Computed example of a mutant assay.
Amino acid sequence: MSELNTYEQDFYQWTIEQAKAINERNWNSLDRENLKEEIEALGRSEYNAVVSLLVKEIEHLLKIDYVPIPDCKNKWTSEVIAFKKGIKRKISPSMKPKLELEFKEIYTDAKEIVEAEYTISLPEECPYNLNQLLS
């Protein structure tokens, strides 16, 4: 079975074969095109995971600061802590410039979710800065 067929028919087996080829320095056996695509997809996936956690963190901070449900504040605070821990585990230094570029959109996503959930109006500009959210 060729690499391409293995890639299409049995992704798990393909990963084993590619790892073995790298380990054995068998460069001619590498499925370069699919490896490139998978590595790029892995990077996107990691970045998207950080963005998702960041949106959730902002959502919960907005709930704490703008939704008048005192009984929920402790739960929301504990969730903010969990999201921060998740971000800390997943973030890499090279992600920060892209997060800075997309921060307004990230905030808008979180804002729209909370506004829809609680039928409230929130600030147009994010009341939190990115460094504060990432620390």
Rank of each mutant, 00 (worst) to 15 (best):
L4Y: 12
L4A: 15
E8F: 10
D10T: 00
F11I: 03
F11K: 01
Y12M: 08
Q13R: 12
W14K: 03
W14H: 00
T15I: 02
E17D: 14
E17G: 00
A19E: 10
I22W: 10
N23C: 04
R25G: 04
N28C: 07
S29C: 03
L30M: 12
L30H: 04
L30N: 03
D31S: 02
N34H: 05
E37C: 09
E37A: 09
E38T: 02
E40D: 04
G43T: 02
G43A: 10
R44H: 06
S45N: 03
E46L: 01
A49K: 12
L53A: 15
L53Y: 01
L53G: 03
L54E: 02
E59F: 07
I64F: 09
I64W: 05
I64Y: 15
D65E: 15
D65L: 06
D65K: 13
P68Y: 15
I69Y: 04
C72F: 14
C72S: 13
K73D: 12
K73G: 14
K75W: 15
T77Y: 09
T77S: 14
E79P: 04
A82H: 10
A82K: 09
A82Y: 12
F83C: 13
K84T: 07
K85V: 00
I87A: 00
S94H: 06
P97W: 06
K98E: 13
E100I: 11
E100P: 00
I106N: 02
Y107C: 03
T108M: 06
A110S: 05
E112M: 11
E112D: 06
E117H: 06
E117C: 00
Y118F: 10
Y118P: 13
Y118S: 14
P123V: 07
E125P: 03
C126A: 13
C126V: 06
L130V: 10
N131F: 14
N131C: 12
Q132T: 12
L133E: 11
